[in-house]
Amino acid sequence: MSAQLSLKEIERKAFRSTYQDGLWDIYYGLIVMCMSIFVYRPPKGYSPMNIILSTLMISLSYGLFWAGKKYITLPRMGQVRFGSMRKQKARTLAIVLGVFVLIQVGLVGLTTLGWLNPDAGAKLNTYLNERNSGLLVVAVIGALMVGPSIIVIAYFSDFPRGYYIAIMMALAVFVMIYLNQPLYAIMIGGLIILPGLVLFVRFLKTYPLQPKDGSYE
C-alpha cells in the first residue's frame, strides 16, 4: 500500500513539475487583461474595436505562452508523456467543460429568446430594473461562468494555483461588468501574473539549459 502511495507521489510530483515555469499563471493573467478590453463598454458605445483588439491580444498572449513552452521550458525541463490515468482525467475534463459550454450556450439561448419574445424580456427587465440589479445579475452570472470553469480545470489538471487564479478571474469578470472599469481587471491580471513571473525567474535559475542537448549516447 505504502509502495503504491509513494509511486503515486512520484507521478504527481513529476506531473506538477510541468507547472513550475509559471507560464500558465502569466497566460491566465494576460487573458484577464485582454478580457478587460473585451468587456469594457466605452461611453460612446461598444465598438468592434474592443473585439478586434482583445482578440489580437489574446492571440499574442497565446503566442507568447506557446513560444515560452517550446523555446524556454522544454529545452530546460525536457519532455514527458504521462500515463493512462492523466489521459482519462483529460477526457473527463473535456466532458465536464463541454457541459459548462452547453450551460453557457443555454444562457445565450435564453437571452435570445428574451429578444425574440419582447413581453417576457420586458417583464424580466422591469423586474431587474426595479431592483436596480440588472448589471449585478449579469456580473454575477459572468463570474459564475468563469470561476467554476477554471476551478474544474484546476482540479482535473492537478494545478493547485489554478484555484487562486479561478477566484481572481471570477472577481475580475465581476468587477469588469459591474464597475465597467478596465483598470481593476488589469490590476487583478497583474496579481495573477506576479507569482507566475516569480516562478518563471526561479525556473530559469533552477533549470539551466542542458549543454548536452538532452541526447543520450
Binding site: L7, A14, P75, M77, G78, V80, G83, Y207, G214, Y216
Partner: peptide, 23 residues
C-alpha cells in the same frame, strides 16, 4: 525505473531533472 513505471515515456533531460542524476 520508478519514474518510468508511473509515466509513459520521457526524454533524457526530464529524467535528469527528476532524478537529480548527472548526465
Amino acid at each position: 525505473m520508478a519514474l518510468l513505471y508511473v509515466i509513459e515515456s520521457a526524454d533524457f533531460t526530464f529524467l535528469m531533472n527528476q532524478t537529480g542524476l548527472t548526465w
